[in-house]
Simulated scan of single mutants.
Amino acid sequence: MSVPLVSVIIPARDEVGNLPALLDEIAAALAAVDHEVLVVDDASRDGSWTMLQARAAEDSRLRPLRHAESAGQSTSVWQAAHRARGEWLATLDGDGQNDPADLPRLIERARRGDVGLVAGHRTTRHDDWPKRLSSKVANRVRGALLKDATPDTGCGLKVIHRRAFLALPYFDHMHRFLPALILSQGGRCVSLPVNHRPRGAGRSHYGLNNRLWAGLLDLLGVMWLRHRSQLPAGLTTLETARRHTPTPQEETS
């Protein structure tokens, strides 16, 4: 079995009205990219699992997973990442608001090799005002305290090296802090503007309470991790030391 370049990960709950079109858009956007798609059905009650099984029977690139009971977005992404085969992980939300057409550009930037994560930045939001307000406040608080230099860390559209993701500590809601966690491991993050679209069907599972206030304890934990990290730390190997050690002829010349 060939190893795909990219594993697209979609956590989804009750998104049967959005997933079919989203999967079609991903296939079109990544037609020239060797990829697989892992959709984690987080205990949906709307027929998502039946639909995913039927599509997977016709598309070998689709690998659906299912929680019997809801475990949340971070756990869904974490479990899918451990089952993914791609060198890079591309995440996006299952509500269809992230545009798969942005994926090739983010993947191309990530493959330059100088970053561990490329995050999307939704410069124009298509959400109701409570969601926009909570996201704006959360981004400002996180940015001020974590200094993660990421204007929109809540954007679900991200490309991250799988090896870098697997090195991160797991905790619930970790998906909200991926840039800061990558920085704490000595990695580098960049943000690119991406398209954002109105939700097509269903309703959001997030609001002010579970988007802002519920993350305060996690925020303190990530602050502690960044404070205690000594990465990146300069490290000389025997090979690099030999390359930089002058020979006797060089010392006498």
Rank of each mutant, 00 (worst) to 15 (best):
A119S: 15
A149F: 13
A110W: 07
H126R: 11
L157V: 00
L117P: 07
A144V: 04
G116C: 09
V159D: 01
L117R: 00
D152K: 02
R125T: 09
T153R: 07
W129C: 03
T123Y: 08
P130Q: 02
C155Y: 02
G116E: 15
V141G: 05
R111M: 14
G120R: 02
L146R: 04
L145C: 04
T150P: 02
D152W: 02
G143L: 12
S135H: 14
L133S: 10
L146D: 00
D127K: 15
A144L: 15
R111P: 00
R125W: 12
L133G: 07
H161G: 15
R111N: 05
T150M: 07
T153P: 15
L145S: 00
N139Q: 15
P130H: 05
G154S: 13
R125M: 13
R132Y: 00
H161A: 09
H161I: 03
W129H: 07
L117H: 03
T153G: 12
K131F: 03
R112E: 14
T123P: 04
H161N: 13
A110F: 00
V141R: 09
T150H: 01
D114H: 04
S135V: 11
T153M: 13
G154R: 14
S135G: 10
L157D: 02
G143M: 06
D128V: 05
D114M: 00
K147F: 07
A138N: 12
C155H: 04
L157Q: 03
R125F: 11
V115I: 04
W129M: 09
V159I: 15
V115M: 06
P130A: 07
R122A: 07
S134N: 06
H161W: 06
G154N: 13
V141F: 12
R162S: 01
C155K: 02
N139T: 15
R132P: 05
R111L: 08
A119T: 04
D127W: 13
L117T: 03
K131P: 00
H126L: 06
K147Q: 12
D127Y: 08
D148M: 03
R162H: 05
T150V: 04
G156W: 11
D127P: 02
A144D: 08
V118F: 10
D128C: 06
D127L: 14
S135R: 11
A149Q: 14
P151L: 05
D114P: 01
H126T: 09
T150F: 01
A119H: 07
G113F: 02
A119F: 02
K147R: 13
G116P: 08
D127T: 14
L133K: 05
N139L: 08
H121S: 08
R163L: 02
K131V: 05
L146N: 08
D128W: 02
T153N: 15
A110H: 08
D114I: 00
V137P: 11
K131N: 06
P130T: 06
D148C: 06
